[in-house]
Design a protein around this nucleic acid. Structure first.
Lengths: 341, 341
DNA sequence: GTGAAAGCGCTAACAT
DNA sequence: ATGTTAGCGCTTTCAC
């Protein structure tokens, strides 16, 4: 039933090495022979065996994606992009969830992946900032791409970046332009460097606009809906209250809106609220959320491509440098011009 | 750096076959030798090579999960359960998204998986109901587990089931007990058999309670938030309106609540709304959603276990039968007793 | 431009 | 209870 490279070779009347050359697009085969081989492959419905390939050669046609559970959207989209790229090149994607918060990184990558031969690993936030994982990978000489890393970690591994600080800056600027001068901010989880960058962008925009920032206007959160609820409670229960709340992500923004409603405030009339990430939730709540859209799927695709390219040109000095993907401010119904009663 | 089975064998002073036996928990090794081998493994930090194993033997220690994109929650949780089970047994999970709606099943599984040697495939809805995929898998003699299949498809493959009809029945019953006699229903995507089952359960509960069902009270949907919006519009804009809406899933329920709000109706005072699936969204909207919780993570874990077990007892005649997992009605703030103004 | 031979690191079948 | 010998299906030298 299953044909092997030998079957193809004998049907095409060539040696298995020639078949191998054709399969791997290697030079030194005449177009005529190439065609003979391809015809035989088609006739026999031949497909190379992954295990044999990776055992004999240096490629496994497998990529791994290591992730925590930041948001289901994030993972799913990243995964979608990565698998799309994989499929184009006959690759497959292995998923490896780890628990970052509890420090359970399942030993090392060595432990995680065992001896599964992968041609590269995609590290998503916040895992990409784990010194342990990154150095374990380097030691094992497994190529990696870090998506949105926040710490340099002294690695030469390429990364896919989105400028969280600039996006937060722009979003804050948008609120200021809409007349808001008193804006609250709900922080994300401090273990995610994105939280700090978003806060930085927020602070800088206020500063650049010569606006005072009352320290009490920045409250802690952890990227969960509940944190949004609590953060808004804190922000809105004081003697004076901000006219806008910038939540570190969409889930928290949803929480803020929910709490605002419970306190009898209308959004966006009494309070503008914006989030970050443009998850599906953003357009599912009422009013729909003004937020920052990040091309996550694209990031996943690019990361996979980088790794596959690298594996293909194995010998060649590799050139993958850092790649930047663009964000976008998406304005919806949850924000409006300031309306001081 | 990387040690092989030969290194372990010589360090332990035994043959490679003995090492292999210990590694695979095969009989006929004295406890003493077993220990020697294990010590050598530990000292050398030895881990078997996946490719070599699967090339030589009959197991690949790889499982595949084929899925469409029904809801990001669904996939992520299923994946989480499956990877957890995999890790317990030194397995890894390969993900294979396909596009069911456009009929793009990327040829066959043969095409999809190429020659990637997997020990089993987890089929999630609605993919598990694809005759093409299921028969391709059977032809290739690749074991599979179908999660929540709706069509028998004449396969002997085991499945993990949740009783959607019974759950919908119970939910409807709960609404009836709360005094609702006029209940609207928003259907899910007709390509998902779950839609039909949920509708069946709904209808049966009304019938068993001797309640009339106006055909106009059942409207089409496709499991999206927008469908919930539109469905509620239809249901609530007539001369008389239902006192409750049962949406086929949470996203649509969220849409229904959103539209109700826009029409000036309070939930649950003027209208009770309930969903299905208990996604994260359910507790993120206001009011939080009464819905049906399904143990998706558990389903993924069980599916993986089934496949791994099967691969372990390869020779033995094994009969993994179908497994049922339990649902639960989760009552939150979006439903209440009927309140006829 | 093409091919022969030698493994890659394991498991399987058959000794012993 | 343990060891020996063949491969699994490819990619890699290195000849030709």
């Amino acid at each position: 039933m299953k044909s092997t490279i030998t079957d193809v070779a004998s049907r095409a009347g060539v040696s298995i090495k020639t078949v191998s050359r054709v399969l791997n697009d290697e030079p030194n085969v005449t177009e005529k022979t190439r065609k003979k081989v391809r015809d035989a492959v088609k006739a026999l419905k031949y497909r190379p065996n992954f295990s044999a390939r990776s055992l004999a050669g240096s490629r496994s046609y497998l990529l791994a994606m290591v992730y925590d559970n930041p948001s289901v959207e994030y993972i799913t989209h990243m995964q979608k992009g990565a698998t799309a790229a994989c499929r184009e090149h006959g690759y497959h994607l292995v998923v490896e969830p780890v628990d970052w918060d509890t420090g359970d990184l399942t030993g090392d990558i060595e432990m995680l992946l065992g001896r599964l031969p992968v041609d590269g690993v995609i590290l998503t936030p916040p895992i990409c900032d784990s010194r342990r994982i990154v150095s374990a990978l380097e030691k094992a000489r497994i190529p990696m791409v870090r998506i949105c890393p926040r710490n340099p970690l002294m690695t030469s591994a390429p990364s896919i970046n989105m400028d969280d600080a600039a996006a937060a800056y722009d979003m804050t600027r948008y609120l200021i332009d809409a007349g808001h001068t008193d804006i609250g901010f709900i922080r994300g989880a401090s273990s995610h460097e994105s939280s700090h960058l978003r806060e930085q962008g927020f602070r800088k925009a206020l500063k650049d606009a010569d606006l005072e920032l009352d320290p009490a206007r920045i409250v802690d959160g952890d990227y969960t809906f509940e944190a949004g609820l609590a953060g808004a409670e804190l922000l809105l229960s004081g003697y004076t209250r901000p006219t806008a709340i910038f939540a570190g992500n969409d889930d928290m923004a949803a929480g803020a809106i929910s709490r605002a409603g419970a306190l009898g405030l209308s959004v966006p009339e009494d309070l503008s609220v914006c989030g970050f990430d443009n998850t599906a939730l953003a357009s599912m709540i009422f009013p729909p959320l003004t937020t920052v859209s990040q091309p996550i799927t694209d990031a996943g695709r690019r990361a996979a491509h980088l790794l596959i390219d690298r594996a293909s040109k194995s010998g060649t000095a590799e050139l993958p440098q850092d790649i930047a993907v663009e964000y976008e401010i998406v304005i919806r119904g949850s924000t409006g011009t300031v309306n001081r009663g």
